[in-house]
Nucleic acid binder design. Sequence first.
DNA 1: TCATAAAATGCAATGTCATTGCATAAACTT
DNA 2: AAGTTTATGCAATGACATTGCATTTTATGA
Lengths: 142, 142
Amino acid sequence: MKIDPIDILKQNDLKHTKQRVRVLEEIAMDNVAISQPELEKKLGKEIDRVTLYRILNVYEDKGILHRVMDLNGTANYAICSSSCTSEHHHDEHVHFNCTNCHKIYCLDVTIPQVKMPAGFSAVALNSTAYGVCEKCNARVKN
Amino acid sequence: MKIDPIDILKQNDLKHTKQRVRVLEEIAMDNVAISQPELEKKLGKEIDRVTLYRILNVYEDKGILHRVMDLNGTANYAICSSSCTSEHHHDEHVHFNCTNCHKIYCLDVTIPQVKMPAGFSAVALNSTAYGVCEKCNARVKN
DNA sequence: TCATAAAATGCAATGTCATTGCATAAACTT
DNA sequence: AAGTTTATGCAATGACATTGCATTTTATGA
């Protein structure tokens, strides 16, 4: 999937600023979700802390990014599939949270449906696996 | 399942203090996970903020409680099944996070196993459904 | 039961992280 | 190009968690 930050901004009626473009570029870099602290480390020289928060919030509201919480309650962000809108976030894939490098991967694995008990109506289902990721496993072996 | 706070403390080599007992009592009250802020609201008069944090941490370390993060990154705590130890948390049931009352339920539904991509080794799998819970659904209908 | 040692508690201070208000700067419109 | 609207950056504030230390409480053994 090709990501064009400028297209995304236009489609969502957002003004085109270099900060917003940079954030999208950074998050689209690979298929892992990136945490707010990491983003801040990478973009801190170019973008103010506050602006970063605001951009991330706008993107989440618009359905451009989805937010995943890791075990420490830190927010991680990844590009949403194209079907997400501000009304509906479809985030129906399994996440993988590496306990070594703390990266969160969006796996290409759909979440198996589970039966809810009577009275409970679910609108979304999240699933996160914890363990050691590809890269960290490789690093140990070699 | 019957919960006896004093037994639990003995089994885990923890000193018997009234604060520790109160925390366990409060969390064992129903089958939903309770958040740190809620606990603080309920116990704030009896227990100092800091002590509460420390107790929760000890309980988590010992495998007495497990911690679930909600969408806002707030920690929620629930009594662990008896098989949890400080080395291994088995938390292999689906959680239900009510978007109305924000309670987190531990459902009696085991998480379906999912296949990991090559290279990824998972040691734990968490699953959380979001929606409206039993009680909130009932409240709307009547 | 009392004295002692070990540990938990409460308070104050510190640290981290997120949010708000406002002046300035940048982007879209005509 | 000028004016309006919106985003940005900075400073201040607010919410939340952690650490150090003095005091209190619990467990142990005479």
